[in-house]
Design a protein around this nucleic acid. Sequence first.
DNA 1: GCTAATCTCTACAGTCTCTGGAGCTATTTG
DNA 2: CAAATAGCTCCAGAGACTGTAGAGATTAGC
Lengths: 149, 149
Amino acid sequence: MDHAFTIGRLSKESGVKVQTIRYYEEIGMMPLAMRSEGNQRLYGDAEIARLKFIRHARDLGFGLPAIRELLELGDAPEAPCAHADEIAKRQLRDVEEKIEQLTGLQTELTRMVKQCNHGQISDCRVIEILSDHDNCLEESHGGRAHVKS
Amino acid sequence: MDHAFTIGRLSKESGVKVQTIRYYEEIGMMPLAMRSEGNQRLYGDAEIARLKFIRHARDLGFGLPAIRELLELGDAPEAPCAHADEIAKRQLRDVEEKIEQLTGLQTELTRMVKQCNHGQISDCRVIEILSDHDNCLEESHGGRAHVKS
DNA sequence: GCTAATCTCTACAGTCTCTGGAGCTATTTG
DNA sequence: CAAATAGCTCCAGAGACTGTAGAGATTAGC
């Protein structure tokens, strides 16, 4: 935990590319790293965890602004609750919604895999099924849960 | 079912923006549309279903390459199941993994919201939850979610 | 100690997936 | 039939990377 390492090692440990790490630093998702005598970035274990977190959250479909908020919850655990609570609640709603939708897809994919028993996919109904799910379409907040808006 | 309609109606019915539909055509996610005398694209019901499917899958965090694969399952209904089965299983694994991670995050966020009601978030473990997931050796394929909110 | 291989640095161009605008044409409707 | 609406193509830009070039830093082998 003591000896710092450079960006290449951080990249390997976290699974985030070197360029991406520098990009995250640039946009403030990662703190400004200490520098060595020769101007190379130096990191510790905390950065590995942070990057793994970002990577997973990205994989789960969160946008960087959302992830930034989640990171803030961890960065300032002593902060007054009002704001954090609001963020946590909003993220929680988002997460619950994602789970719900994914569970629906899981069901359909499972059925499909079952139906697909080494024959032909003559009645593969993924498209039908997913496109007929009108109920989960009109979502409150304009559909895609992402940045922007 | 018979009368064709133009892109605006398709957009409304599917919930996908006009520009995005044209973009999908450009990159081959949607077939080249027939054109009217005046060069306007004409569509039928099949396109509505296809676009709804794409939209849902995007909302769920699938990348276009993955969606393309899923669409192929429906486009080639006479194809032998082997490959399709494999794709479906892979997507299913991906979905299950996401659900698992999201559930962990959900638990943590719920806990935080609860704690918030009583004072402060003394130990926020959001990062830990999502950063400790080493077992899921990041896999490429199409899981990437580029949706941002 | 010197050199070659291997990072790392900055800066900037390009990709992917949309999204929006300008300027013009087609269609609908009052 | 003119105005409003919708569509067309082409182009720019945003978000989140990804890759490349050229120069400096670090390390490993001799």
